[in-house]
């Protein structure tokens, strides 16, 4: 249901942001292959369980997010030190947004569509998960429904990713002005795009910003939950996910 990226009056920057997005099918095949490799290893060593599989999937998704960022407009111009600071600050928001946007754009009611293309029934998750995880999934589902009602499209998600990534509040940025300028441009492009596609434009744009703050608090809770599971040794180690977790908690 998304309009063609180059439709009439499409803000140029929105088109640029959209072109940076990875191809969903390629991503799905790449991560599925990687997960299968992991599972063959597990057959020899004994299957560590669903939660570990989800962590490997999250780690692989995080790798694809870093790949998206480092090849993206504006971000690829930044020094590596600034790139690291920005990603350390917002990685969990981008990870949760990746999961949520997949449900809004491609998912079906009552099930969770994984990055590998597989589907898991939400009722199964609720029955297997503990209270904290079940609460996070429930809150995520509510955010999916809000964004679904708004009929968010790929263009808007592409803008939101840049809004999250280019956060001028991150400390000690060498190129603070560039980061601030990109965030302002991304906000302007999103405002222009939402006002072009919806009658009550300020309402939609403001509602999107409210959803962004809900996403921020949800990702902080998810990070804390993951860190607790890590401290009890339940998260596979020596990967990007663990490194990013430590980056914020060290």
């Amino acid at each position: 249901h998304s309009s063609s990226p180059q439709g009439p009056g499409m803000p140029r920057l929105v088109t640029e942001f959209l072109l940076c997005d990875p191809d969903e099918l390629q991503l799905q095949n790449k991560i599925s292959a990687r997960i299968q490799q992991e599972q063959t290893g597990w057959r020899r060593l004994g299957n560590p369980g669903t939660f570990s599989l989800m962590c490997v999937m999250a780690d692989q998704t995080l790798l694809s997010i870093v790949e998206w960022a480092r090849t993206s407009i504006f971000f690829k111009q930044l020094k590596v030190s600034d790139q690291m600071k920005l990603l350390h600050s917002c990685w969990s928001e981008l990870l949760i947004l990746d999961i949520i946007s997949r449900q809004v754009l491609y998912g079906r009611v009552g099930s969770l569509l994984l990055v590998t293309g597989q589907e898991v029934q939400l009722s199964d998750i609720a029955s297997q998960a503990g209270p904290t995880l079940a609460g996070l999934v429930q809150r995520g589902q509510e955010l999916v429904e809000r964004l679904h009602i708004l009929k968010l499209d790929r263009q808007e998600f592409a803008c939101i990713k840049f809004l999250i990534l280019f956060n001028p509040d991150v400390k000690d940025l060498e190129e603070h002005q560039l980061v601030e300028s990109v965030q302002e441009q991304a906000e302007g492009a999103l405002l222009e795009y939402t006002s072009r596609t919806s009658s009550q434009h300020l309402g939609r744009f403001t509602h999107l910003l409210l959803c962004l703050s809900e996403l921020r608090s949800l990702s902080t809770l998810a990070e804390d939950y993951l860190y607790c599971r890590h401290l009890s040794g339940e998260v596979p180690c020596n990967n990007l996910l663990i490194e990013m977790l430590h980056a914020k908690h060290s």
């Binding site: 870093v66 790949e67 590596v80 690291m84 490194e243 980056a247």
Partner: peptide, 18 residues
């Protein structure tokens, strides 16, 4: 011995097509 660069840094510094 220099500190091992982080995985994130290695990813960001990797050649474009890797």
């Amino acid at each position: 011995e220099p500190e091992e660069p982080s995985l994130l840094k290695k990813l960001l510094l990797a050649p474009a097509n890797s």
